[in-house]
Design a protein around this nucleic acid. Structure first.
Lengths: 334, 334
DNA sequence: CTGTTAGCGCGTTCAC
DNA sequence: GTGAACGCGCTAACAG
């Protein structure tokens, strides 16, 4: 039924070892023999069985990718970066959505390891002891991608979320704003949630501004929750003159909420966010945001993983990619 | 180093066959024995090797997914539908971007087949003879996902692109518009490009409206190309009163271009599109669009593939999912 | 209910 | 430069 290396060997009149050499580009084969083998392969339509190869060689040229949600534009961008580099180094990726749920994450990590992936890229919520435990039993390299662990013991690629938030809020402060609201992600989320909230508070503090908890709303990263949060802010006795959103989507929701209320951005209220997804330039006014290089985070983490898998030396196993403010039209001076 | 089924057998004082039975939930094991085995597994930290299992059983519980570009919101949504259902049936997916490039598509199809995937989901550009050839040599089921082949010989899940476009344009016509422009995808793209263009023409024809080729611009599905196309339309001697865009993104570009020119949507110019991505409700005015159920396309095609892989009978191997108009605010009457 | 025995398709020594 | 033989870790009959 299926044609094996053995069939090719017989067809070409050589041993299967020789066919294996040809297929794997081993130079120790006479050109003439090589040609015979190639012809036999062609004639029989032989397709090497990567599973058998994986068992024999203990390498699958496949890496596992744990991602929160591929339908989220931010993560999809990271995934594309990962896949492009994986492809470049002849790896394939098995993709698993885990929605930042710990149990689901642990489960997919284990099935990925059962599938004998050569490495693992983990993008999730908090890295707990259970995660660490699962990672430890893996005897393949692991890279955290756009997520960090407290102890900092695992190789990772991320941006400085706290710093990015700090910079965003400082931009607002420099423009003269003093009453600045924040639309935050859940504080359970270490990077997108907690760290950005910390950055917000630190910026306030650095400027000698008071922290007012009525100016902070927790959203779920989505457009609607940005709308809801802003609706709340607009009903405050003294409405904030600027809002910092933890994501573009929520920021866009806020902008529309403001506009629907008959106010103008940035004339009456300024808006800034962290992400700089493609959507940022697809709103009016265009969104001023701190850019997270998502594609690069994916690409760099995959590149790092390839080095680890090849046991190459890596200079810095914990890379922090730079962020930058992209000034567009949603921030005005007060 | 790595603990195998054999180690577990020794540790539990049973044969490896019994361990295999326990691991695979074979009911023919005495509960007491089962318990002993589980304890040994726990004690040794045994993790079954799916590659070896795949070689022996000739099943990998892995399916290949060829996708144009995971960073495109539309496809990311499909991918999520695929993965959710795959997960439900205990399959994993290997994801490959192929950018609708024929050569890349053929290449990844072959490596996916080498990896012995149990099935293949193909989402790409045109399905050529070369594709058909590659599919034929695969001895696993294949489902076309959001793409179609001319002959209609391969199982597929898609919407009626031509009909969706027809309905969109007809909506415009019913609102009294007679000068309707189209922002089109490349005509080489059978579904998103050509079919939608055909639907546009047919709707015009059905209403007795003349087809005017100066009213058609080719875009690349992206925001900027929508802006560019609209810019061109606005410079025409008689500006169209409505525009039909093949995608949401281009439609949003068009809307902003109109607004930036000081015109209003839908008062002066109406805009409608096909897609209904999440972005459609994230613009002002909110976009009226024909909804493509992308998540469902992914989910249904994966479900179909599971049936094919289990050799279950399938009633209809070529499913066409319904589309519907979602009336929001970007279409006005003339 | 449990154990024995063959392979699954290929990489990899080690001889020749 | 080439072949023979073993083993990767597991499933799947077949006995018992």
């Amino acid at each position: 039924m299926t044609v094996t290396i053995y069939d090719v060997a017989r067809e070409a009149g050589v041993s299967m070892a020789t066919v294996s050499r040809v297929v794997n580009n081993n130079p120790n084969v006479k050109p003439q023999t090589r040609k015979k083998v190639f012809e036999a392969i062609e004639r029989l339509g032989y397709r090497p069985n990567a599973v058998a190869r994986g068992l024999a060689s203990k390498k699958t040229t496949t890496v596992g990718v744990v991602i929160p949600d591929i339908s989220n534009a931010i993560f999809a961008e990271v995934a594309r970066g990962i896949e492009d580099i994986a492809n470049m180094y002849h790896y394939n990726i098995i993709l698993c959505n885990a929605d930042k749920k710990k149990d689901k994450e642990i489960r997919v990590i284990n099935t990925l390891l059962e599938k004998q992936v050569d490495g693992l890229l983990f993008m999730g919520g908090a890295v707990t002891d259970e995660h660490l435990q699962a990672f430890k039993t893996a005897n393949v390299p692991i890279v955290l991608c756009a997520t960090t662990d407290e102890n900092g013991t695992i190789p990772s690629v991320d941006i400085d979320h706290e710093g990015a938030a700090f910079d965003a809020v400082q931009t607002l402060i420099k423009s003269g704003h003093t009453r600045i609201a924040m639309i935050c992600g859940t504080l359970q989320d270490p990077s997108n949630g907690y760290a950005r909230f910390q950055g917000y508070k630190r910026a306030l503090e650095a400027a000698g501004l008071p922290y007012d908890e009525t100016l902070v709303r927790i959203g779920n990263y989505r457009y609607e929750s940005g709308v809801d949060a802003m609706k709340y802010f607009l009903e405050l006795e003294t409405v904030p003159t600027a809002v910092f959103s933890a994501t573009d989507e929520m920021a866009i929701g806020a902008i529309h909420c403001i506009q629907d209320a008959g106010l103008k951005v940035p004339e009456q209220i300024s808006v800034i966010s962290v992400d700089n997804s493609r959507m940022a330039s697809m709103v009016r006014p265009q969104l001023t945001a701190v850019a997270q290089p998502m594609y690069d985070i994916g690409a760099v983490s995959m590149r790092l993983l390839t080095k680890l898998m090849k046991k190459e030396a890596v200079e810095n196993p914990r890379v922090v990619l730079p962020h930058e403010i992209v000034n567009r039209q949603s921030v005005g001076s007060k």
